[in-house]
Nucleic acid binder design. Structure first.
Lengths: 211, 211
DNA sequence: TCGTATCTTTACCAAATGGTAAAAAAGCAA
DNA sequence: TTGCTTTTTTACCATTTGGTAAAGATACGA
């Protein structure tokens, strides 16, 4: 009787198991994020990981298992900046700081950004439950916080959810649409300009009017 | 000797040809925009169009031909709002009007938005030449126009390219990430709120400081 | 109505792809 | 070393998929 690691029934994960699962997930992130789910083949992942295809299927139950594991695994990392918003901090600085961290993530973790973009673009078929159970409560909380800040006169009035959409859209754009940005900006360092531009934009949007 | 329409050697396009090519392209837009290039099968397009697969290949040279045709065909439509920006109009109103039109397109033509998003996300493998030859010159022109407006004190200073990125990102977000917006906004009419939010945001960004 | 060109269907095929069975190899505790 | 478990490889397989050949049906001008 074989306890397959893929089925998560193994007593404890050996060192080899840890190493290989990590390798596979990293390779899969690379491939999934650039070709999408259907555009990715197990052979590509296998080559990228330097592990044979059947061996990959020894560690995971299948292509979909790898994809779902990646998605769920990276969700926390991806939402960390939103968790880091401090209710007791200065509202404007907290939001601007959030924008900056999101932009840094778009620069440093473009694969993760594209992985999520691909998934959402196709209707979030494998992530809908997670969006509902993890993202939504967090966004609801944040929206309440922003509304409180607005009510206290610390921020100009905005719809909190549309504000978040604008932040996500503008920052992730530099990762998700990199091919286009590249064509239009040439060799110029897009990130530096983007940072200044976005900080300015969200400051002007959110600075409360002197009353 | 057969003059296949797919090879564009037909003397003149018959009525049947027009109708069927249109049907196929519409079906293909539907499927490509939701499943991406690799995620789309000719069988899906065939079923959606109500035309048999071999018959589809009578009108187009292959899957890629359909995709490229769609992309090139829709590019003009997609860029129309940018062409409509009037150098002689009021700068702030021209930009805000552009934002509004882009948002309306995201609402009315979400399939086109997702088709392009899918393509760019994956590195624009089939659209890079078009980006370079069509989009880039147009963006360069618009950037010069915006810079002139800024120099004339009609707009607050911004990097024109990053401004365009922000406009594209925020407006297209409502089409491309609709699945997410849906989860987070529920039944609320996202478009109305988005319109007010974005108009406000770009006005505050671009209103020149009284000096 | 006839003949030709256009259009559509039927019946396939080769390659790619996700996945499996089972044997061989490698680790490892005793 | 021995014996058992874990890991990896080899050799496959069934399905899907983009695409083709060729016969059959249809439109259409003369």
């Amino acid at each position: 009787m074989q306890d397959t690691p893929g089925a998560q029934r193994a007593r404890k994960t050996s060192r080899i198991q840890m190493r290989n699962r990590k390798r596979i997930l990293d390779a899969a992130l690379e491939v999934f994020s650039t070709h999408g789910y259907r555009g990715t083949t197990l052979d590509q992942i296998a080559e990228q990981a330097g592990i044979s295809k059947p061996n990959i299927l020894y560690y995971f139950d299948g292509k979909e298992d790898i994809h779902v594991t990646l998605l769920n695994h990276l969700m926390d990392e991806w939402l960390a900046p939103l968790h880091a918003v401090d209710p007791d901090g200065d509202p404007l600085e907290e939001i601007v700081g959030y924008v900056r961290r999101k932009l840094e993530m778009a620069r440093d973790l473009p694969r993760e950004s594209r992985l999520f973009a691909n998934e959402i673009l196709q209707g979030a078929p494998r992530m809908a439950p997670h969006l509902e159970s993890v993202l939504k409560p967090l966004v609801d909380d944040t929206a309440r916080l922003i509304e409180a800040w607005i009510a206290a006169g610390k921020l100009a009035p905005v719809d909190p959810r549309h504000l978040l959409f604008s932040i996500w859209a503008t920052t992730q754009h530099y990762a998700d649409f990199e091919a286009q940005v590249q064509v239009l900006m040439g060799d110029a360092d897009a990130h530096k300009g983007a940072s200044a531009h976005l900080e300015r934009m969200f400051r002007r949007l959110l600075e409360p009017d002197p009353s």
